Amino acid sequence: TFTSIVTTNPDFGGFEFYVEAGQQFDDSAYEEAYGVSVPSAVVEEMNAKAAQLKDGEWLNVSHE
C-alpha cells in the first residue's frame, strides 16, 4: 500500500522519499531506493497529487 502526505518541513536527514512542488514522482528512483516496484496506477496518483503542490510544499511518499 502506497501513501503520501503533504509537508512544508521535509526531513532530508531520514530515509524518506519526497516530491518537490513542480516535479513529478520518479518511480524509477523510488524503486531503486526501496527495491519496490511501483504500479502505474500509483505513479499516476502520486503525479496528480504532486501537481497540486504549492511552492514550499513537498509530497512525502511511503509504502507498507
Rank of each mutant, 00 (worst) to 15 (best):
Val6Cys: 08
Asn60Leu: 15
Pro10Gln: 04
Asp55Trp: 05
Ala48Met: 13
Glu31Ile: 06
Phe2Lys: 07
Thr8Glu: 09
Val42Pro: 02
Ala48Lys: 13
Glu32Ala: 14
Ser37Val: 13
Glu16His: 13
Ser4His: 07
Ala21Cys: 07
Gly35His: 09
Gly14Tyr: 07
Met46Asp: 01
Val43Phe: 06
Ala33Asn: 08
Glu44Asn: 11
Phe25Arg: 00
Asn60Thr: 12
Asn47Pro: 01
Thr8Ile: 10
Phe12Asp: 05
Val42Gly: 01
Gln52Asp: 10
Val36Met: 08
Gly13Ala: 10
Ala50Arg: 01
Asn47Gly: 03
Pro10Leu: 04
Asp27Tyr: 15
Trp58His: 02
Asp11Gly: 07
His63Met: 07
Phe15Lys: 15
Ile5Ala: 11
Ala33Trp: 13
Val38Tyr: 00
Ala29Met: 09
Trp58Ser: 03
Glu57Ile: 00
Gly22Cys: 05
Phe2Pro: 08
Ala21Arg: 08
Asp27His: 15
Ala41Asp: 12
Gly22Ser: 04
Asp11Phe: 11
Gly14Ser: 14
Gly13Pro: 05
Val61Phe: 00
Phe2Glu: 09
Asp27Lys: 15
Val42Trp: 05
Leu59His: 02
Ser62Phe: 14
Thr1Asp: 13
Ser4Pro: 08
Lys49Val: 07
Thr8Asp: 09
Gln24Ala: 12
Glu57Arg: 00
Glu44Gln: 12
Glu20Ile: 05
Lys49Arg: 13
Phe17Tyr: 09
Asp26Glu: 06
Ser62Tyr: 13
Lys49His: 07
Asp27Ile: 14
Ala48Asn: 11
Gln52Ile: 09
Ala48Val: 10
Phe12His: 09
Val36Glu: 04
Tyr18Cys: 03
Leu53Ala: 02
Ser40Cys: 13
Thr3Tyr: 11
Phe17Cys: 07
Phe2Met: 08
Lys54Tyr: 04
Asn60Gln: 15
Leu53Glu: 02
Ala29Asp: 05
His63Phe: 13
Asp55Tyr: 08
Phe2Gln: 08
Glu57His: 05
Asp55Leu: 10
Ala41Trp: 15
Pro39Gly: 04
Ala33Arg: 15
Ala41Cys: 12
Glu32Asn: 11
Leu59Thr: 00
Tyr34Leu: 08
Glu16Cys: 14
Thr1His: 15
Phe25Pro: 01
Ala29Gln: 10
Val36Gly: 02
Leu53His: 03
Val43Lys: 11
Glu45Pro: 01
Ala33Pro: 03
Ala21Met: 07
Phe15Arg: 13
Gln23Gly: 14
Ala50Ile: 08
Ser62Ile: 14
Gly14Thr: 07
Pro10Gly: 03
Tyr18Gln: 07
Thr1Ser: 15
Trp58Val: 03
Ala21Gly: 05
Trp58Gln: 01
Gln24Leu: 14
Phe2Cys: 09
Pro39Ile: 03
Thr3Glu: 11
Thr8Tyr: 08
Ala21Pro: 08
Thr8Trp: 07
Thr7Tyr: 00
Thr1Lys: 15
Ser37Arg: 13
Ala29Tyr: 07
Ala50Tyr: 00
Val36Lys: 06
Ser40Glu: 12
Gln52Phe: 09
Gly35Lys: 07
Thr3Ser: 09
Tyr34Trp: 09
Thr3Cys: 15
Glu57Phe: 03
Val61Ala: 01
Ala51Gln: 10
Glu45Tyr: 07
Ser40Leu: 13
Tyr34Gln: 05
Asn9Leu: 08
Gly22Pro: 00
Gln24Val: 12
Glu31Ala: 12
Lys54Gln: 11
Gly14Gln: 09
Ser40Asp: 10
Tyr30Phe: 14
Gly35Tyr: 02
Leu53Asp: 04
His63Cys: 04
Asn47Cys: 05
Glu31Pro: 00
Ser4Gly: 14
Ser4Asn: 04
Ala29Thr: 06
Asp55Phe: 08
Ala51Asp: 05
Leu59Lys: 00
Leu59Gly: 01
Val42Ala: 05
Gln23Glu: 11
Val42Met: 05
Glu44Arg: 11
Val42His: 03
Val61Glu: 02
Glu32Gly: 08
Tyr18Val: 04
Glu57Lys: 00
Asp55Cys: 09
Ser40His: 13
Val42Gln: 03
Ser40Met: 13
Glu57Ser: 03
Phe15Trp: 11
Ser28Pro: 04
Thr3Ala: 08
Phe12Arg: 07
Glu45Thr: 06
Ser62Gly: 09
Glu31Cys: 11
Asp26Ile: 07
Phe12Thr: 06
Leu59Trp: 01
Thr7Lys: 03
Pro10Thr: 03
Val19Tyr: 01
Val19Gln: 01
His63Gln: 06
Glu64Tyr: 06
Glu45Met: 10
Gly22Trp: 04
Trp58Asp: 02
Asp27Met: 12
Glu20Tyr: 07
Ala29Val: 08
Pro10Tyr: 01
Glu16Gln: 12
Gly22Met: 06
Glu32Leu: 14
Ala33Gly: 05
Ala21Asp: 02
Leu53Phe: 00
Val61Ile: 13
Ala29Glu: 07
Gly14Met: 07
Glu31Gly: 09
Gln52Arg: 10
Tyr18Ala: 02
Glu20Gly: 15
Glu64Leu: 11
Ala48Cys: 10
Gly56Ile: 02
Ala48Thr: 10
Val6Glu: 05
Glu32Gln: 13
Phe25Met: 07
Tyr18Thr: 01
Gln23Pro: 00
Gly35Cys: 09
Ser40Thr: 13
Ala51His: 08
Gly22Val: 01
Met46Tyr: 02
Gln24Cys: 10
Ala33Leu: 15
Ser4Arg: 00
Val6Met: 05
Phe15Thr: 13
Ala41Thr: 11
Asp11Trp: 10
Ala41Arg: 11
Phe12Ala: 06
Thr3Ile: 15
Phe12Cys: 09
Phe2Leu: 09
Gln52Cys: 11
